[in-house]
Design a protein around this nucleic acid. Structure first.
Length: 265
DNA sequence: ATGACTCATTACATGAGA
């Protein structure tokens, strides 16, 4: 079974690209982030015509996560237990569309879009750290309940764990994605017993998954590695290969992220 | 080659992204 995760940066703008990608790469389960659409407007029909089932969680033009599967799609959950809500000034806390889970071919897959953080000191940064902490707590709960669980937490983690995961660490000093608290929040998932399998299978430096649209970042290969797959030990043992679909950044109408593929036995 | 931001919005300027 081949699972892929992709921050698609609007599913409506790239539905044809997504369909071609599913077919070309023979993807069984595709976790999408930043679909940027409400549930009612998600273009499910073309995916269904291609033989896939779709589960989507989208509230407005921001965020939005989906799972597209031809390996089964059951027990769909919007939001993970304990997921923090975000309180905009003057508004009650509201859950954002940043997590959807489903059982696909014997694997529980979560498509995750970790908050960006915006800036050090911004309320969104505290929210980002809370999100990672709550995700870790829920992972601990799942692993405790069933040590053999087949669990994959995939998506855009918005953290660059190593200096070699960004083209120039100096650019990120004092900014988001590389700060010690963010890296600690990311590492806590490993300390909880999960394994980040893309690093296990693809340790090369500058194996980027994101290139900003601005300033010719892709042409200059000035990217970031921020899309990952944390797996339970039992599932991690089944991972045979990992591939970054760099070709998806090419051409007109590309997302700024590319898919990351995980092959299971 | 890979190409100079892009996407969605009760839109024509703004917010968000990283």
């Amino acid at each position: 079974m081949r699972i892929a995760t992709w921050n698609i940066n609007s599913v409506r703008a790239r539905v044809d690209r997504a369909l071609a990608y599913l077919q070309t790469r023979q993807i069984d389960v595709l976790a999408l982030q930043e679909t940027k659409v409400k549930d009612a407007a998600f273009p499910a029909e073309p995916f269904e015509a291609a033989g896939y089932e779709v589960a989507h969680f989208g509230l407005n033009q921001w965020n939005g996560v989906a799972i597209v599967s031809r390996a089964g799609l059951a027990n769909v959950r919007a939001g993970f237990p304990g997921q923090p809500a975000f309180a905009k000034p003057g508004a009650p806390p509201a859950l954002e569309a940043r997590a959807i889970g489903a059982d696909c071919g014997g694997v529980t897959v979560w498509s995750l879009y970790v908050p960006h953080g915006r800036a050090q000191g911004d309320p969104h940064m505290a929210y980002k750290l809370q999100f990672l902490q709550a995700l870790t707590h829920d992972a601990v709960r799942s692993l405790s309940a069933d040590p053999q669980t087949q669990l994959a937490l995939v998506g855009d983690f918005n953290v660059a764990p190593l200096d070699s995961d960004v083209w120039d660490p100096a650019v990120f000093e004092g900014n988001t994605h590389t700060s010690p608290p963010e890296r600690a929040g990311f590492a806590a998932l490993a300390e909880a017993g999960l394994r980040e399998v893309t690093r296990d299978h693809l340790s090369a430096e500058h194996a980027y998954t994101f290139w900003d649209y601005q300033q010719l970042r892709f042409a200059k290969n000035e990217g970031m590695r921020i899309d990952f797959a944390y797996c339970s030990p039992a599932l991690a043992d089944r991972v045979k290969a990992v591939r970054i679909a760099r070709e998806e950044r090419k051409g007109k109408g590309a997302s700024d992220h590319v898919p990351v593929e995980i092959d299971l036995d």
